[in-house]
């Protein structure tokens, strides 16, 4: 047989697998859809700021949490208001699209089978897909903060920021806290991403997975609002979604950040395991 001995044996090279992650990131950001989602998120603080700028009087808080002072007095509040306004709907919506698409989207395109025979081990694909969905969470919240800061600085005066505790911080420390806040909200969405990943392994119809993920985000928030189900509340992935206020105290309280991270980690573990069970045993027929 004229086979070359160099390729008759098992391949010698073994890369870290980061290449796939990089490739996955490129695929995510090569999609026009991804940019459309980020643009929609960036539009939230921009629209709030413009609306308040145009209306000379009225509610100058822009629907943000009550602790935020008037945006017209301090443009830096635009970013936080934008983030707070996006938490219940816009962010889950975009995360649902990205997370629901992870596996189902590949299955729908048919590219899933080519990835698996490349070969990408199924666990590795799940991990990479989740990592990229998580990356998108951070990109999404960062987009809101950056867009909000930019538009706020452009339209309104900027100055020292009062905290919940009554103390006042400078712009530099505020920037740090705004990034922390973006990180907090991004972490809050990791559980939802894991849920979306699992749902995505159940179907080859990405739209279905996206819709189901978004519906679950809504259901979680509704259950969280029902006082009769108080026992259930700490178990909901949306439980700490509005706990970011703790980052606006002096000194910063990281307790909620930690509780939230732990909760999200639990969701990642549970739904990651479910996704693995489903995906590792699934026949890829698309």
């Amino acid at each position: 047989m004229p086979s070359d001995p160099s390729r008759a044996s098992a391949p010698a090279i073994r890369t870290s697998g980061l290449g796939l992650f990089a490739s996955e990131v490129r695929v995510l950001f090569a999609r026009r859809r991804t940019w459309a989602l980020l643009a929609a998120l960036a539009a939230v603080p921009v629209l709030i700021a413009i609306a308040i700028r145009l209306s000379s009087d009225g509610d100058a808080r822009g629907g943000g949490p009550p602790f935020l002072g008037s945006i017209t007095q301090n443009g830096l509040f635009v970013a936080l208001t934008g983030l707070a306004v996006s938490i219940p709907l816009f962010l889950p919506l975009t995360i649902g699209v990205v997370a629901g698409d992870t596996i189902a989207g590949e299955a729908n395109l048919g590219t899933l089978r080519y990835l698996l025979v490349a070969p990408v081990a199924r666990v590795r694909l799940l991990i990479v897909k989740f990592a990229v969905a998580a990356l998108f969470c951070f990109a999404a919240t960062l987009t809101i903060v950056l867009a909000g800061t930019a538009i706020g600085a452009a339209l309104f005066p900027v100055g020292p920021v009062p905290l919940l505790s009554g103390d006042t911080i400078g712009v530099g420390e505020y920037a740090l806290r705004a990034l922390l806040l973006a990180a907090y909200v991004a972490v809050s969405l990791l559980g939802l991403s894991a849920v979306g990943l699992f749902i995505s392994t159940l179907t080859t119809v990405p739209v279905g997975a996206m819709a189901a993920t978004i519906v679950l985000a809504a259901v979680s928030q509704i259950l969280g609002a029902l006082p009769q189900l108080e026992w259930l509340h700490p178990w909901l992935f949306s439980h700490h979604w509005f706990g970011f206020a703790d980052l606006m105290r002096q000194p910063i309280s990281f307790g909620t950040f930690g509780d939230n991270a732990l909760l999200q980690l639990g969701y990642i573990a549970v739904f990651g395991a479910l996704a693995y069970g489903r995906f590792a045993t699934k026949d890829i027929l698309s």
Partner: peptide, 21 residues
Amino acid sequence: SKWMRWLPAAIVPAVVVTAAV
């Protein structure tokens, strides 16, 4: 082996809930 792959899905939630409680 196919059922073994569901094992984490059975164990992890139990462990997480137990730990949380």
